[in-house]
């Protein structure tokens, strides 16, 4: 379909407009929460890319981390538990001129929202999904999450977790995401690089972040990760090597890798959806005026 006469873009004023920064709302997270590092890294990333506030939409679900959109000066959608990705996909398909960033926690993304996580990745929707993974349910005061460690004692598992944790990175590899990274909120600059590169990547970018809960998770603390994480970039990892990415994703113990696991190029869902070839859907003409011949099929 060729470009049709679309109404003038209500955006279009571009770089002269303010870029994304802090909003006038201050985070309500516990002092020392890992999520402070994540919001700082996201802000740093969008600033570096000079993205105007009105062209960015940050979407979240429910949980401590899902308050994040309120702390940035972009458009935001703070929805219900687990549905970050379908809302984000709908926004992308309605206007693929927008930069779409999904945010949320491990319970939101890998528990109640696990089905959407897998499907959004296989579609390779061009958006960036940042999960603040603290391996615990914080806002509901400390129950086990899908990434809680086997044996971990929580309010809902007083005798210890007896389920194997989900590994978000290998799940993303299996599901077909085209940019898969892991960051640590204790290293904001490194995390900001991962997020900025993820936003620039054309396709589904997944950045799982170790973002410790200082109140309810006494195992996976800042110190726990500081002692263990190493950067793939300094370890000779080739992020275009899928087999190597799989091997690195399985590493867990004294050494835990952070950085870019895998990156590849594949057409995005928006590339393959023919209707979007005519430009952002929100700017395309709508209705059936003058299409009376459409009724012939009912004769």
């Amino acid at each position: 379909m060729s470009q049709t006469a679309a109404p003038p873009r209500p955006t279009g004023l571009g770089a002269a407009l303010p870029v994304v920064g802090k909003s006038d709302t201050r985070p309500t997270w516990c002092p020392g929460c890992g999520d402070f590092g994540v919001v700082a890294a996201v802000e740093m990333a969008v600033k570096r890319l000079q993205l105007p506030s009105h062209t960015v939409v940050v979407i979240s679900g429910i949980g401590c981390s899902s308050n994040l959109p309120h702390f940035l000066s972009s458009y935001g959608f703070h929805g219900i538990h687990g549905r970050v990705l379908p809302v984000a996909e709908g926004i992308r398909w309605a206007n693929h001129g927008l930069t779409v960033i999904g945010t949320g926690g491990d319970g939101d993304g890998f528990g109640i929202g696990a089905g959407h996580f897998v499907h959004a990745m296989r579609r390779n929707v061009d958006l960036t999904y940042v999960t603040m993974d603290n391996q615990i349910y914080g806002l509901t005061t400390g129950q086990a999450s899908p990434t809680s460690t086997m044996g971990q004692k929580t309010k809902s598992t007083p005798n210890g977790v007896i389920e194997n944790p989900i590994d978000p990175v290998s799940l993303a590899l299996a599901s077909g995401a085209t940019y898969i990274a892991r960051g640590f909120s204790g290293d904001v600059k490194h995390l900001a690089d991962l997020v900025a590169n993820g936003i620039q990547h054309k396709g589904f970018s997944f950045v799982d972040v170790f973002s410790p809960c200082v109140t309810y998770n006494k195992i996976n603390t800042f110190d726990f990760f500081r002692q263990r994480v190493y950067k793939l970039e300094s370890a000779g990892h080739d992020p275009t090597d899928l087999v190597a990415a799989w091997q690195r994703s399985l590493e867990w113990g004294d050494k835990i890798p952070i950085g870019l696991f895998y990156k590849t190029d594949r057409p995005t869902y928006e590339d393959l959806e023919e209707v979007l070839a005519a430009g952002p859907l929100a700017l395309q003409p709508a209705g059936l005026r003058g299409k009376e011949s459409l009724l012939d099929e009912f004769v």
Binding site: G79, V87, W93, G115
Partner: peptide, 13 residues
Amino acid sequence: LAAINMAIGASFA
């Protein structure tokens, strides 16, 4: 679940 949330996202945008 996805169907209605996608439609809401699209409408929002």
